[in-house]
């Protein structure tokens, strides 16, 4: 069943800087996008910081790779689920996140938001229906 489409979920639980998990996790998503699977991403715990708008890593010497998230829509990675409880625990509001969008080719290329704020319970339901879950 080489042509079978599976549901892939990439869970991001770590802050963007300090370790390389987030950056290497994102690299996996971008490579995986070429395989034409049904891809979703989830952001929880400190992973919600990966989507924070206005990141500036300049003085740390670490590369600010946050612009790459804006390219996800072009890779047809259009379902980004952010856990509400993780945002609230860190004092973040949905409007503190990058406004990531994609063009819906099935709807006259209308620009639509990629980020969906979901509760922990809703996220559990999303996990339940996946075939493959990677955790970074």
């Amino acid at each position: 069943m080489a042509n079978q489409t599976k549901k892939f979920l990439y869970i991001n639980r770590r802050a963007p800087y300090g370790t390389v998990y987030a950056l290497e996790g994102l690299e996996t998503v971008l490579i995986g996008a070429a395989f034409e699977q049904d891809v979703s991403m989830a952001f929880m715990d400190d992973g919600v910081f990966q989507l924070k708008d206005h990141q500036d890593s300049g003085e740390t010497g670490m590369k600010n790779f946050s612009p790459t998230y804006r390219a996800l829509g072009d890779y047809e990675v259009t379902k980004l689920y952010v856990e509400r409880e993780s945002l609230e625990a860190r004092g973040l509001r949905p409007e503190d996140l990058m406004a990531l969008t994609y063009e819906d080719e099935d709807d006259d290329y209308k620009e639509k938001p990629s980020i969906h704020i979901v509760s922990s319970a809703e996220l559990a339901d999303i996990l339940e229906i996946q075939d493959v879950i990677f955790n970074f």
């Binding site: 080489a2 996996t28 490579i31 699977q37 075939d131 955790n135």
Partner: peptide
């Protein structure tokens, strides 16, 4: 080899263990 090998394993396997 490249990350494509990881995705391919996920597609081919019945269960992916992390």
């Amino acid at each position: 080899s490249g990350l494509g090998q990881l995705i391919e394993a996920g597609i081919k396997a019945d269960r992916m263990m992390i």
